[in-house]
Amino acid sequence: MALTRRQRARLGRGVQYAIAVAVVLLVALTADWATIGRAFFDLEVAASQFPGVIVIALRNTIVFTALGFVVALALGLVLALMRLSSVRIYRLVAGAYVEFFRGLPALLIVIAIGFGVPLAFGTILDRTVAITLALGIVGSAYIAETVRAGIQSVPRGQVEAARSLGMSPLRTMVFIVIPQAFRIVLPPLTNELILLTKDSSLAFLLGTTLEQQELAQFGRSALNQFRSLTPILVVGLCYLIITIPLSYLARRLERKYGSAGMPKGAEV
């Protein structure tokens, strides 16, 4: 009884659906919904999280992430240029930096900054400065690679045309290459921003006052206070409020700018 291709395809799909339904049923029937409800959806506890979770925690997460991203972008741009430089020492230093900081967990980097800088330089950093620096260093290693790839993907012809007009390497970079590279790297940069948002949860390692708590620590603190997992849900939703729109933005940018920096949908 040989099956035709269509029948085989339909059978395959049917099996997949059956498995999916079975898994869902298994989870749904074995989970203790009453306990989950009590643990995660305690409305009273949820209500008590406001306005602190927005006014303090969400605000801090946004501030730490934004500041860290600015530093990461600036550092990353410099590092990318160093990696592309004709000066060997720059290439080596930048290369070592990127390999090193991409290879370490952000957790360790935050701890190192928190203790290392005060020990080395004898002065303790303001906690916001410290987390900004740590996030900036973590992000810069990834952004350097993204920006470098973006710059290198700008077609050589663009550079040749600019140089042929008498534009110096600096002017070529500033007016032609970087604007074009920028559009190419916008989607991955947006992704990096999402990652940095999650890494901001490491701020607790540096020690914080109650006003400096970001979302994750706020949630854990409340978890301890109320012995309920609801704060985790609330805080999680706040994270998604930040990351989901960013994700959407990244996808839209990718559609708009494609991979060649040229507006899509134009006739040639």
Binding site: G157, Q158, E160, A161, S164, L165, G166, M167, I176
Partner: peptide, 20 residues
């Protein structure tokens, strides 16, 4: 070389217009 190139105009096979 940047100054010298001002005296020469180059037209490329692939046009190389600045896309931005």
């Amino acid at each position: 070389i940047d100054d010298a190139r001002r005296t020469m105009g180059m037209v490329f096979q692939q046009f190389n217009l600045f896309t931005n």
